[in-house]
Amino acid sequence: MTRLSKEILTQTIKKRPEISHKGTFGRTVLIGGNSQYGGAIIMSAEACVKSGAGLTTVITAAKNHSALHARLPEAMVVSFEETAVIDSVLETADVVLIGPGLGLDQTALKLLQKILKNQQAQQWLVIDGSAISLFSEYQLALNFPEQTVFTPHQAEWARLSGLSINKQSEKNNCAKQADLGAKIVLKSYRTTLYDQAAAYYQNPLGNPGMATGGMGDTLAGMITGFLAQFEKTIDTLAAAVYLHSLIGDDLAKTNYVVLPTSISAALPRYLKKYASERK
């Protein structure tokens, strides 16, 4: 087990090259937010954009478009029903996130099946929230497990792995991750990352003020933004996890509750700091 520290940030976050453009920092597609849970995908998108992703497109229920445009005009938006446009943006995506606020209905299932079926060899896929539950319930399969990241909390991991919470030991979790082949970001009081290439990482940070709705959606968006622009490795996932909690801990020094959107708002400043400290 490797205990994460600030070193993972200076190893991962790098200065932006002088000669660059939007495409330099990756194209991301985020899918989620049904008519009831639009806030989830908006928080993911905000974290993704403020993490530095070059181009971000959000596929969400039409009801959420006005709110997304008002909150985050930097993101493009597509409706669930716009099949041709969805196919077009997916074709050019570097990283796809599906699940925040997606729901469990047939529309959500069909979108997840489409993503799994059409994932390309160069694309990374982040599966979060209700998409994890759908994947587990319908026993779906991965085309590129080595390029897939699941971000479950412990109850979602129980559904995905078949391990009840009291059976989720380090040994059992490592074994189930090896069976799946995908990388696992297991969210809890001390979030742990599992991957055969690195055994597992444990995040020592986090605080009770972060126990509020949308925190996982924000982390999923950060992971997506980091994968879009930095090296596509377990270390990059670890850097996103660590920075998410580091900002949360700093905010908790003066705030009783740490809002996910406050973490996103702080991201550009923290990224600048650790890019500047990189040797």
Results as ranks from 00 to 15, higher is better:
residue 120 Q to S: 10
residue 120 Q to D: 00
residue 171 K to G: 02
residue 98 I to D: 02
residue 118 N to A: 11
residue 99 G to V: 02
residue 130 S to L: 01
residue 188 S to E: 07
residue 151 T to H: 06
residue 187 K to E: 09
residue 93 A to W: 08
residue 146 E to N: 10
residue 107 T to W: 01
residue 110 K to Q: 15
residue 97 L to Y: 09
residue 176 K to I: 06
residue 114 K to F: 14
residue 106 Q to C: 03
residue 106 Q to V: 09
residue 160 L to I: 06
residue 86 I to T: 13
residue 177 Q to R: 11
residue 110 K to N: 15
residue 134 L to P: 03
residue 108 A to L: 01
residue 88 S to I: 02
residue 162 G to M: 05
residue 91 E to P: 03
residue 186 L to W: 04
residue 127 I to M: 05
residue 173 N to G: 04
residue 162 G to P: 03
residue 181 G to R: 00
residue 85 V to A: 11
residue 178 A to P: 00
residue 105 D to Q: 13
residue 152 P to W: 08
residue 150 F to T: 02
residue 86 I to E: 09
residue 102 L to M: 04
residue 190 R to S: 13
residue 102 L to D: 04
residue 124 W to T: 08
residue 120 Q to M: 10
residue 112 L to T: 12
residue 172 N to H: 13
residue 145 P to G: 08
residue 105 D to P: 09
residue 183 K to E: 05
residue 103 G to Q: 09
residue 174 C to N: 10
residue 115 I to A: 07
residue 88 S to D: 14
residue 157 W to Q: 03
residue 113 Q to H: 07
residue 109 L to R: 15
residue 190 R to E: 08
residue 145 P to V: 03
residue 183 K to Y: 05
residue 162 G to S: 04
residue 177 Q to T: 12
residue 169 S to T: 15
residue 147 Q to V: 05
residue 173 N to S: 14
residue 114 K to M: 12
residue 158 A to S: 14
residue 184 I to F: 03
residue 119 Q to D: 11
residue 117 K to L: 15
residue 93 A to I: 01
residue 173 N to P: 01
residue 140 L to I: 02
residue 167 K to D: 13
